[in-house]
Design a protein around this nucleic acid. Structure first.
Lengths: 151, 151
DNA sequence: TAACTAAAGATCAAAATTAGTCAAAGTCAG
DNA sequence: CTGACTTTGACTAATTTTGATCTTTAGTTA
């Protein structure tokens, strides 16, 4: 017997595939009702299967008219790259390492100078005024998120 | 399913766009009737979507012949822009306010969409995984730093 | 002209509507 | 039996909707 998480995963991928816009917006409780499970199961499915590493971006809004939006990222040249970057950055990264990555992206013309300035500003230790090791973890999260949205 | 606030927001922006003078004057109760909601809903829409951060000025008058006037401001590009932005951002800023600023910069064509994605990613509460009030302070620092480098 | 009245809009907080988090309990392959 | 993965649900957080009550303004009346 298949577990519910897999079934929900398949269902979401299917409607995502069928959608013309490249993303879907669901109501968490609708899906939960549909599959007869608790709402937080949907969060579990999303956090284990629709991750940035697998090429998905998930946004959401609470309150009236709330939703969860799942977007599949393009798979051209960036497929391997995004994955590689995420892997390199990992869960924690120093400023020096982060700068290395950004410089390389500029070299390879994957981002322009202006974009690199934005990235560099966001990961600077003078901006992330919080103690280690949280600072390096936060830097990794911020850099990953920024790069995921452009690739 | 859309929520009413978004629908009202779109409607106001549309008539604002169509207006010749750059501002509109509405009667609160008219709009409320039109969208079948309570009058205070209009205040909610205005206070969450037509904020100074997003470049709107709202004036109103009560009593007979009362009105709400919504004006769209332009963001002249000057040397003082960066300073102005820093002042608006201050030492702490919510995600909503930060998004307002970013949307406005896109509207004013001071940054492009791709850049806005980078900025939005960096100030997202799901990325800044740290408790309030530090999160809002960090967000202000990051946003300020990023904008400083481009302007 | 002062007082009154009706017609707006403003404010604020409660209620409603969603989604997120986290950890305990359950399941299952090896 | 153990460890990884899944299922559940209680509690939390964000956002919107609603309504009661307050304030301001223009016009009317004594």
């Amino acid at each position: 017997m298949q577990n519910i998480s897999n079934i929900i995963e398949e269902h979401l991928k299917q409607i995502l595939n069928a959608s013309r816009q490249g993303y879907i917006e669901i109501r968490r409780s609708d899906i939960a009702d549909q599959f007869n499970c608790v709402p937080s199961q949907i969060n579990y499915v999303i956090s284990t299967r629709f991750t940035p590493e697998r090429g998905y971006v998930v946004e959401s809004k609470r309150g009236g008219g709330g939703y969860i939006r799942i977007r599949r990222l393009g798979f051209e040249r960036t497929d391997a790259l995004a994955e590689k970057l995420i892997a390199i950055i990992g869960g924690s990264i120093t400023q020096r390492e982060a700068e290395g990555i950004i410089y390389r992206l500029v070299d390879e013309q994957l981002i322009n100078r202006r974009e690199s300035f934005i990235l560099l500003a966001a990961i600077d230790r003078n901006v992330l005024t919080i103690g280690l090791p949280v600072r390096d973890q936060l830097r990794a999260a911020i850099l990953s998120a920024m790069l995921m949205t452009v690739f």
